[in-house]
Structure formats: structure tokens, C-alpha cells
Nucleic acid binder design. Structure first.
Lengths: 231, 231
DNA sequence: CGCGGCTTTGATGTTCATCAAGTAAAGTGG
DNA sequence: CCACTTTACTTGATGAACATCAAAGCCGCG
């Protein structure tokens, strides 16, 4: 183990403060020693549904989608995930194989650790295990809440919800570039592509949003929030 | 601490083998010392949405539903839970308050442990923490998978799915008593009560099931499975 | 340049929610 | 125990929401 290992800059990584806070400097070095940082272009598949889980992957930079393909060849999008939402965490401790795919929807950087090493540390360092659990629990909860929220809304409310999600939760901006296609929005909210497009056009006609291809500008935030809540 | 404590029969409890396997006999006695076993009648609310989380509750016997009420006063059912599916586990490690309610849909028995004590053990016993995490992770995964499954189906497929769920997953029998009302099925699959009833009636007319009030007998399993998969 | 995928709009039909109205069952208070 | 109220269940009629089908324009890419 070399302290000069160029890969080994984890002690500066934001990850440390998030869930390695109970891992000693020395342990961290050991974990870093076997880590791989990988860059992914928009569209790259990072994890393929069905693959064996051998690693502990987390998203350092970018944006990804979790999805699952149905028996009739279509895709369902489970959620979108930002850095530190630990995309690979979900099945990691309960399955041997991934039961969904992870795809970059923006250029992204992942950090890959050997799962067995992480597990070994978790089995000996209880505080670390607890931090992991809190994270797993929180991420799962978010997904379940979000799904309930979408489920109770109609088409317009769902589309409005997604726009607000990207605007507020991902980009913190009234103007942003949609990282997903209309079809992907449809796959996320469980409606057809055509109806997503029709709804966006309608919002545009009603001057609630402006559309420039992939770019969206929210013009009337209150109305959009109202549609999301009651529409 | 008394070994003759009448409450203290945890060492015989099935729970032990499930996720206290890495807890020593002595630790188990300490945990048992502060446990409360409670009986609930069908319909009783065990956990109320919004309540502070002070305890670690698990289902020892019976059947419950997890639900959440929407802003417009209706209910959404998140999942049904059998013993050892650890109903209170979900939010316990990520929130201070429950964000759903738990209600007995059959006469049930819960076991209540002090959350702080459980947490304290988890923070010192890494193997115990890992077992907990595996459980949390697995339960969450099941809920997410199940929701995706329902989402991709139409009315008939969803109703068929629910019938098969109770028949195969809960009762292991072609004949069973529905533990939920038609309205609750509707709240679970995200359709209206009327349409759930209509679909059940249709299945009856097509001789796929027999209905005697709450009792259901699956007559044509293959057709029901087919409807669940493709209908 | 042409191909495939993404986007858009319109027309049409299906699926489902809503409204209405009635029966059955189950709980409630005298 | 019975009248009363409420809740669950059931069916039909109607209209709204949404999927499907079709056709055309657009854009990026080999």
C-alpha cells in the first residue's frame, strides 16, 4: 500500500464525510487501494440488469437512471439518481444479481469498490454498517414515496411533477436541459410518449413553460405546482 | 434481569434465527427484558402515520397493511406484510417519524423493542447491523419490484395479480378468505372500487374464480396467471 | 445522402373513473 | 333485540382520460 497511490485521494472525497465518517484513515486507505474510478458518457450502461454483483458502485458525478425491462420488451424507469444517492446500494446487500440496470443520462463518474472488502469492513465496523444501513433505508424510502406520489396523480400532474423534480431537486434552476427523452419521461411516469408530448405542448400553449428542444424554462411556477398537486 | 421473566422467551422465538443469529444469548436477554408483545384485532391501527419512532416493532403473527393517506383524504396501500417481513423496519433508520400507517388486516401479534436499545446493539455488533441491513434492503427491494409489476399491468391483470399474491404468497392455497375489502384492493392497485368489483364479477362469470363473499376459490389457475401476465 | 430514432399532431377507439341507485351486511344505541 | 345508521358490495349508464394507430417533420450519424 502506497500513500502516494494516485488513485488514493479518498480522504478528500465528499464520500468520506457521507458514510465513511466512521472508517479510520487506515481502513480508508485499504479501501481506496482497490478502488476504480470510471468515466461514463451520456447513454452508457453502467450496470446491466441480471449481472452478478461483485462490486460496490457509487456515483461521484453526473446523473443516472435505474430501469428494468418488462417481459414484453419495454422499459420501466424506477428512479433517477444524483451523486451520493448510492445507486448500486439497493440490491447489493440482499441479492446476488442486479435486478435493474443503471444508465448514465449525463456524463458521469463512478467509483467502484470491491464488494467483499466493503462487506468485510461492514462486518467488523458496526458504526460503518449502521451508516450504510441508514443510507440504504433512506434511498429506498425516497423511491417508495416518490412512486406513491406519482401513482396518485393523473397525466398532467405527473408530467408537472417530473418537471418540478428536475428543476428543484436536480438542477436548482427554473431553466434546465432535460437529461431524458420524452419516451424516458413516459417510462418513468407510466404513460405513453405521445401523451407526455401532448401534455408538454399544452403547458407551452398555456404559457406555463417554454420549450426549446431539450431545454425547458418554467414560466409560471405556481401554476405548475398547482397542476402537480391537484391536476 | 431475571431469567424467569415470563416475557423472556425470545431464545425460542423464530425471530432469533432470522436476524438475531449474531446476537449473543446474554445480549438477547437484555433485549428481551424490554420487549412488549401486543395483540391486535383485525382493523386495529398499530402504527399511525406521523408518529414519532421510538420503538422497533416487528410482526410475530398475523397480517398487516402499510398505507399512507393522500392530501385529498384517500388512502394508498403500499404493501401487505407477513410475519418476519419486519413492518416497522423501513423508516426506522432513516426518519424520526413514520411516514405511513400500519394496520392489522388479520388478528396479529407484534413484538416491540426499544429502538435505542436495538440501535445501541447495532452500533456495537457489526454482524447484527449487517443482518438488519440485509433485511431492510430485501424488504425495500420487494416493495419496489412489486410496485413495478403492478404498474405495468392493466385493471384485469392487476386484480389477477392480487388474487395470485394472496393465494400463493400469503395463504398457499387455491381457496382463501380475502383479508381485505374491495376498496382496499383498489387502494393497493390504484384503481376504483367499482372496477375491482366489476373485474371480480367478470372472473366469476368466466368461471376463473368462485366468490362467496370474502372467500375466493381459484378455479382456473392457468387462465388467472395468464391474465396476470398479459391481461 | 439516407437511415433510424426522436418528436409532433391528429383521428379513433379502449379503458377506466364517475355518477347514480339499489341491495346486503355490519355496527350502534335505545 | 330491534330500529337505525353506516359501511361494504354490486350493477348499469355515461363521459373523461388515456392508448393506439397513422403520418409527417426533424435531427444526428455513419
Amino acid at each position: 500500500m502506497s500513500l502516494e497511490n494516485p488513485k488514493c485521494n479518498c480522504e478528500k472525497c465528499e464520500l468520506k464525510s457521507l458514510f465513511f465518517s466512521n472508517v479510520s484513515q487506515e481502513e480508508l486507505f485499504n479501501i481506496c487501494e482497490i478502488k476504480y474510478e470510471t468515466e461514463h458518457r451520456k447513454g452508457d450502461v453502467i450496470i446491466k440488469e441480471g449481472d452478478k454483483i461483485n462490486e460496490f458502485i457509487y456515483l461521484k458525478q453526473g446523473l443516472v437512471k435505474l430501469s428494468k425491462s418488462t417481459s414484453d420488451g419495454k422499459d420501466q424507469i424506477i428512479c433517477f439518481s444524483k451523486p451520493f444517492d448510492f445507486v448500486s446500494l439497493l440490491s447489493v446487500f440482499s441479492s446476488t444479481n442486479y435486478n435493474y440496470s443503471v444508465t448514465a443520462i449525463e456524463d458521469s463518474v463512478t467509483c467502484l469498490l470491491d464488494l467483499n472488502v466493503v462487506k468485510r469492513y461492514a462486518q467488523t465496523n458496526a458504526m460503518f454498517a449502521m451508516d450504510l444501513m441508514t443510507k440504504v433505508s433512506h434511498v429506498s424510502d425516497m423511491i417508495i414515496q416518490e412512486n406513491l406520489e406519482i401513482k396518485r396523480k393523473h397525466l398532467k400532474g405527473r408530467v408537472a411533477h417530473v418537471l418540478l423534480y428536475f428543476s428543484e431537486h436536480v438542477y436548482n434552476n427554473r431553466t434546465f436541459e432535460l437529461p431524458v427523452s420524452r419516451r424516458e419521461i413516459a417510462e418513468y411516469i407510466g404513460m405513453t410518449t405521445e401523451n407526455v408530448i401532448r401534455t408538454l405542448s399544452e403547458f407551452r400553449k398555456d404559457k406555463i413553460i417554454k420549450i426549446f428542444g431539450k431545454y425547458i424554462e418554467i414560466g409560471d411556477l405556481k401554476r405548475l405546482e398547482n397542476i402537480s398537486e391537484f391536476g
